[in-house]
């Protein structure tokens, strides 16, 4: 019976669950997400041309203030 085996395995010593295998591409995707966060919150001309960066800054302006990232 399943119940008898449960008694033999105290919850706090067993690894709590089968872990989820994270493939390598997931870490690449995480890096892309971090880059996207940089882009919308901090990009001010390091990667874009000055007019494009200023346009981006103005469009994301209110959210940058709300998110608390130093804006200007």
């Amino acid at each position: 019976m399943a119940n008898s085996s449960a008694v033999a395995v105290p919850a706090h010593t067993a690894p709590s669950l089968a872990s989820i295998r994270v493939p390598l591409w997931a870490w690449a995707l995480l890096a892309v997400a971090v880059f996207a966060l940089y882009f919308v919150s901090q990009e001010n001309g390091a990667l874009l041309s000055a007019p494009a960066a200023e346009m981006l800054h103005e469009l994301t302006h209110d959210a940058r203030h709300a998110l608390g990232v130093p804006c200007h």
Partner: peptide
């Protein structure tokens, strides 16, 4: 445009956080 842009930006930020959250959750779940 700034107000709409702010809403779109917070959507993008939410999606980026969702991706990062999923990866960290999968790694840390156990």
């Amino acid at each position: 445009q700034q107000v709409v842009g702010g809403a779109v930006t917070s959507m993008l930020v939410g999606i980026a956080f969702g991706v990062i959250f999923a990866v960290v959750f999968a790694k840390a779940r156990h």
